[in-house]
Design a protein around this nucleic acid. Structure first.
Lengths: 104, 104
DNA sequence: GCCATGTGCAACCATATGATTGCACTCGAC
DNA sequence: GTCGAGTGCAATCATATGGTTGCACATGGC
């Protein structure tokens, strides 16, 4: 029942996952390759990659026996737009209230 | 050392907090008022509100002895813009790679 | 003044989560 | 074929997190 938007936000709510994402932002990489750069074990990274893949922020790419991951900006942009829409709605409400207050 | 963006995303990565935020989107409300609508205790809601306030998604408003909370679209929009910027950068990289591939 | 309502604080609990280690398996390179 | 690098799976662990109950405190309305 949990919305996809919530899941994406939850996936983005972890420092290590952001480290992985920014690392992937510089180029596709495998879990093992990432483990050499980041201060966590390969298995921990693999779990994070699985989470990121489930919410669509990352995509697996086979390269020989290596399993590289590619970061997907489209999903992040889509999430951003959804958040923007919600934020805009809240702001409209606030603006309306402010207007009413000024009319009194 | 954790970035503010990560904290906001983490705050948004919880279903109950979204329930609170959408409820507040319809009008300011206190923790007690929210507790009557949502299936969690007032204290749980108070904790969530504290988290939301720390990341700037919500703002306390005194109303007599009541402490109401107001949802802030500005912070959500700011977060959305930051995510959008990152997603766009990733997409630019992918597009560049695709172009190189086509040149071969 | 009294009482009910709204808050705040603290202890506590169960589960989720981030991380680790160890081992087995696969597959490409030499 | 052998070896090593990359991967997958499982068990384990510590801590964070969401949630609860209970109680003390303030504060506004009658």
């Amino acid at each position: 029942m949990t919305d996809a938007l919530v899941d994406v936000c939850a996936a983005l709510g972890d420092q290590t996952r952001w480290s992985i994402l920014t690392a992937l932002g510089e180029g596709d990489a495998s879990a093992s390759a990432l483990a050499t750069r980041l201060p966590v074990s390969r298995q921990a990274i693999a779990k994070h990659l699985a989470i990121l893949e489930r919410v669509g922020l990352v995509e697996p790419v086979r390269a020989g026996r290596e399993l590289r991951y590619r970061v997907l900006g489209s999903e992040l942009s889509a999430t951003a737009r959804r958040l923007e829409a919600v934020g805009a709605a809240w702001d409209r409400r606030l603006a309306a209230i402010k207007e009413i207050a000024e009319d009194m």
